[in-house]
Design a protein around this nucleic acid. Structure first.
Length: 790
RNA sequence: GCUGGUGUGGUGGAAUAGGUAGACACAAGGGACUUAAAAUCCCUCGACUGUCAAAGGUCGUGCCGGUUCGAGUCCGGCCACCAGCACCA
């Protein structure tokens, strides 16, 4: 006795040992089977790490540690996604270089992580702001540029009024900037865009190849928003045809009018033919001022006078309107309106008194529907009418089957300083030319201020003047930088070969390590980072850099940790829990254990400062088992079932993200052993191995105290024996009419018939049966008997 | 509105090839140890009812119905909450 659990001493001892060993360093290429475990690398913010970050890191640390024990060559790396606005905004305010702030924050994060005993391979640490890293971000951009997937285009962009910067669609949440919460307005600007839409179909199709939770797959599919239909070419009184996109081509005989988006180019082209062009332009101007939400309720519009449209299928002339419920960047920016079968079109005609006809007759009783008023489609059901009209328009060359996506191209430039410079040189003679001299290093600045015109701070420096690599003439550099999401779109590839200066990672090591076997991260990245990185990886696959088309074989997502008040943790709410404080008070092992024990890993859960003590008591109980150790190389018969069950439960639960029940089964086992009064060395070895991934410090110390010889990190993960999973003694439950009445034990398994007999003769059962007749007997082998009586 | 998910004690949560609801833990209450406190250990802990005490009884997994010998679990219909998307033609 007297050997008290001193977590401070134990934890610093083992963290030191790990620091000076190569135990967590993955071999670059090996004959062993590989396992690549990945967590999202953090943005090293000024606030520091909070307990929410740890949930993901600890969970996959458990997986990584288990895999090492299972004999895999494990890669579990960590790095820093360090470009981004907060550092730049801080720089603006306090006039400190973002580089300095970033370094400070990284050091702080790293120290916090090291206190938790995570088995990261620190030799592979990457930092997106390091020129030797972003050299390859720029390299990938260059390849995208060469393939025509990165272009600079005049487009309508989301403009954050506070950050003075464009945002991707994914970064605008409810009309405000995702990061700062300021209003976002639409602006037309020349911007770099990446053509992610070219990959839309593949990004949907290849979800079949990966093991992601349904909610993640669904959300991505939803975001990409595929809809199948047709483009149909309508005629017009000015002679030029235009295409509409529709998912309901079978309703074409019901078209009462056509609606253009107010911004549509067709209107400009034929402005002189439009008699009320002033009114139309006024409407356009008003629509552009409206926020997205304001466009949603009342449907407004203007009828275009002087031009009519011609329905290609029946030659009917129909009026043309403009209305802001038609979006210029969706489909073709023109819709054919079928008021009888579309709610929005119906709302619209209420106001403008347009005549329309119904083309589908629905029988309210049978629920069957058939086509009417539709010439050659009459009498058909909707589905076959659709097929028939699609064939018809294709054959008569008035349209074709077409698939439309909601996904927009990725707006890739930011007018900020703290990002990867885009390696493009603008030459008057040669146009846009790639700068092949990578990395193109971000120059140091005195001032980080963004100009009021919204240009990047880089435009105010001499850095922009250069020579054209093609013709040698005077040229200027691109001053926009890449968005936050660039560096994180491929970082998992760099971990594989982090110091290679010739290629982003060697072919050999990429082939060995990719794809990532298990990637855990937050749901909030589903339509951002996760989609972007899949896109980049597919591109790298297309140009032969990687061997697999998908980067992550398996993705899981943790629930967020809420504050003790049940609200989201945030500085402004004052409910942030710093892991340092928890580690100070309880130690790293207890912190890790509680992070995993607090609830269902995939659901959000509030941090309960009182709940932690349960985990503390558990580790103390475990620690005190060393006082009752007895010699022995066997699991004692009395404990065999408990041990085998615990091995099974812990092994399976780790794979299924059920860390909470894995821990409770270990708590159970420790209580059993304690009640039993002694633990053999062999039993201690099993228990300690099971606990090691969860609480690595205390278990390593126990391992050491017990004098077990091999390194616990690579010791063999225990296996259970099916023979000992069931108790030899069975509790039998007797139900009468489905209600539990009697319970008793039998020593060994008996056939069903025998069991029913035993139950019938049970004293208490006989009592219950008095004056009743058995109608039916149901038996679940060695478990339960139900008598149905009258 | 659409898509996905969730709903179980005072609390976090267990339990799905349909078979003992509430594992494990927190909080609470009682007791032991102690001069005392902390720590530790033991007991109780869904509701109602019952008894000196027990035994026992009835109800109980958001609501209503169904299937079944038996439903937290399956089916139909609601309600509430969370997340994402949202005039997507």
């Amino acid at each position: 006795m007297g050997n008290k659990y001193d977590f401070n001493k134990i934890e610093s001892k083992w963290q030191n040992i790990w620091e000076n060993s190569d135990d967590f360093h993955a071999e670059s290429v090996s004959n062993k089977k590989k396992y690549y475990v990945l967590v999202e690398f953090p943005y090293p913010s000024g606030e520091g790490l909070h307990v929410g970050h740890l949930r993901s890191y600890v969970a996959l640390d458990i997986v990584a540690r288990k895999r090492r024990m299972q004999g895999y060559n494990v890669l579990y790396p960590m790095g820093w996604d360090a470009f981004g606005l907060p550092a730049e905004n801080f720089a603006l305010k306090h006039n400190v270089h973002p580089k300095v702030i970033t370094e400070k924050n990284v050091a702080r994060f790293k120290a916090q992580l090291k206190r938790v005993g995570l088995s990261f391979d620190w030799k592979r640490e990457v930092n997106t702001t390091d020129p030797s890293y972003y050299k390859w971000t720029q390299w990938i951009f260059s390849r995208l540029f060469e393939k025509g997937l990165a272009t600079k285009e005049d487009s309508s962009v989301n403009w954050c009024t506070s950050c003075k910067c464009v945002l991707a669609n994914e970064e605008v949440v409810n009309g405000v900037c995702e990061r700062c919460g300021a209003e976002v307005v639409q602006k037309r600007k020349k911007q770099w865009i990446l053509k992610i839409t070219k990959y839309a179909q593949r990004l949907i199709d290849d979800l079949k190849l990966v093991d992601y939770p349904t909610r993640v797959k669904q959300q991505q599919e939803n975001w990409i928003g595929r809809s199948e239909g047709a483009r149909i070419s309508f005629g017009s009184s000015v002679g030029e045809n235009f295409d509409v996109f529709t998912t309901r081509p079978e309703t074409i005989f019901g078209v009462s009018h056509v609606i253009f988006a107010p911004e549509h180019k067709f209107i400009d082209k034929y402005a002189k033919n439009i008699k009320n062009i002033d009114e139309v332009m006024r409407y356009r101007a008003e629509a552009s001022k409206k926020k997205k939400e304001e466009r949603t309720d009342v449907k407004t519009g203007v009828k275009i006078l002087g031009i009519t449209a011609k329905n290609p299928i029946n030659g009917k002339n129909v009026p043309i309107f403009v209305s802001d419920y038609v979006l210029v960047d969706h489909g073709t920016g023109i819709v054919m309106a079928v008021p009888a079968h579309d709610d929005r079109d119906f709302d619209f005609v209420q106001k403008y008194k347009i005549d329309f006809i119904s083309v589908i007759n629905e029988d309210s009783e049978t629920g069957k529907s058939e086509m009417i008023n539709s010439e050659f489609l009459n009498g058909l059901d909707v589905k076959s009418a659709r097929e028939k009209v699609l064939d018809y328009i294709t054959e008569h060359k008035i349209g074709e089957r077409h698939v439309s996506f909601k996904l927009r191209d990725w707006i890739f430039s930011r007018q900020r300083y703290w990002g990867e410079p885009i390696p493009i040189i603008h030459c008057e003679k040669c146009g846009m030319v790639l700068d092949k001299n990578l990395p193109l290093v971000l120059p140091d600045l005195e001032e980080f201020r963004t100009s009021d015109t919204g240009e990047s701070p880089l435009c105010l420096t001499d850095w922009i003047h250069t020579k054209c690599p093609k013709c040698g003439g005077n040229a200027t550099r691109e001053t926009d930088t890449m968005p936050q999401w660039a560096g994180s779109s491929w970082y998992f590839l760099r971990y594989i070969d982090p110091s290679n200066s010739n290629v982003l990672a060697s072919k050999e090591s990429l082939d060995y390590w990719m794809p990532v076997d298990w990637y855990n991260g937050g749901m909030e990245h589903t339509t951002l980072h996760l989609l972007y990185s899949r896109f980049w990886h597919k591109f790298l696959y297309d140009i032969g850099v990687v061997k697999f088309s998908e980067p992550y074989a398996k993705r899981t997502s943790h629930g967020i940790i809420l504050g003790s008040n049940g609200e989201k943790m945030s500085k402004s709410r004052g409910n942030v829990v710093n892991p340092n404080d928890v580690v100070d008070e309880y130690g790293a092992d207890v912190t890790r254990l509680y992070e995993m024990f607090m609830g269902d890993f995939e659901k959000s859960a509030p941090w309960d400062p009182k709940g932690i003590v349960g985990c503390k008591r558990f580790l103390e109980k475990y620690w005190n088992l060393q006082n009752i150790v007895v010699e022995g190389n066997m699991v004692r018969d009395e404990l065999k079932t408990y041990f085998n069950r615990a091995i099974k439960k812990v092994s399976e639960d780790i794979e299924n993200l059920k860390f909470n029940t894995a821990i409770s089964s270990m708590m159970d086992l420790v209580s059993r052993v304690k009640d039993f009064g002694s633990i053999s060395k062999c039993e201690m070895k099993i228990l300690t191995t099971l606990l090691n991934p969860f609480a690595p410090h205390i278990s390593s110390e126990m391992w050491f105290l017990m004098g077990f010889e091999e390194n616990i990190i690579f010791s063999k993960w225990p296996e259970f024996d099916k023979k000992f999973i069931n108790f030899s003694e069975h509790e039998i439950v007797v139900q009468i009419n489905g209600k539990v009445k009697v319970k008793f034990n039998i020593d060994s398994e008996v056939p069903d018939k025998k069991l029913i007999e035993i139950c019938k003769n049970n004293e208490k059962v006989v009592d219950f049966m008095k004056g009743k007749t058995i109608i039916k007997e149901i038996c679940v082998s060695n478990k339960l008997v139900n008598f149905v009586v009258r």
